[in-house]
Design a protein around this nucleic acid. Structure first.
Length: 216
DNA sequence: ATCCCGAGGG
DNA sequence: CCCTCTGGAT
């Protein structure tokens, strides 16, 4: 017997309350001063800790002080500066290409719509949602591996497809909660509901989670 | 050895 | 759906 829509929404609301209590000040941990800097930092953050991204960005943003500066360098040179973040060749190409597109297509201003953001080289839905929610105040959810794993465990998503899952979750959670929920789920995923070894014993969602205890 | 707040391409 | 790109933490 399938859970009713109303029941599911009530369970979702309770998940929101509990995560809010456990991670009251979860937020974006990347350091940046401008939308373009957040774009750079977010591109660097793939498969890399935010702490390292911040370490790399500190000197990086002193060396390259504007979108134009990032657009003027050649990718192989930039790759050296971001080496420790991993995927450095691709990320360097993405950052240079993205910066050139922002300059040439958007007059140096980072665009404010998903449509335009995902056209930028190296910017996908995850990065775009991050920018929209963080600097432009547009309700958005970042569907990353944690979000996909946890929402599927909770029975709130029935797919690994990020676009489909985003639609399902946007229907289930209040828009005003999306950005905070994203950061809290990610924290929860790093600290408690860890991939392949979820700590259900100390999870505040265990009694709400159909998968609790069945995964370890 | 295995995993990570991804994106692009086949 | 699959694969590749990479360093670092555990």
């Amino acid at each position: 017997m399938r859970e009713s829509r109303k029941k599911r929404q009530e369970r979702a609301a309770e998940v929101v309350r509990r995560l809010a209590k456990e991670w009251p000040d979860a937020r974006c941990s990347l350091h940046y001063k401008t939308p373009h800097q957040l774009l750079v930092a977010t591109i660097l953050s793939a498969q890399c800790t935010d702490e390292r991204v911040n370490q790399v960005c500190k000197p990086l943003f002193r060396k390259y002080r504007s979108p134009r500066a990032f657009a003027s360098v050649e990718a192989p040179e930039l790759a050296v500066d971001i080496h420790s973040c991993g995927y450095h060749n691709q990320k360097a190409r993405s950052i240079v290409g993205m910066s050139r597109a922002v300059l040439e297509l958007h007059g140096g201003q980072v665009p404010r719509t998903m449509e335009e953001l995902v056209k930028l080289p190296g910017v996908g839905r995850k990065t775009a949602n991050c920018i929209l929610g963080e600097v432009f105040g547009v309700p958005s959810m970042v569907i990353d591996t944690h979000m996909i794993r946890i929402m599927n465990l909770l029975g709130f998503g029935k797919t690994r497809d990020a676009v489909k899952l985003e639609r399902e979750l946007m229907d289930l959670f209040e828009p005003a909660e999306w950005v905070r929920l994203t950061h809290r789920v990610i924290e929860h995923g790093r600290a408690v509901c860890i991939a392949r070894r979820p700590a259900c014993a100390r999870c505040v969602l265990a009694d709400l989670c159909p998968s609790a205890g069945k995964t370890a």
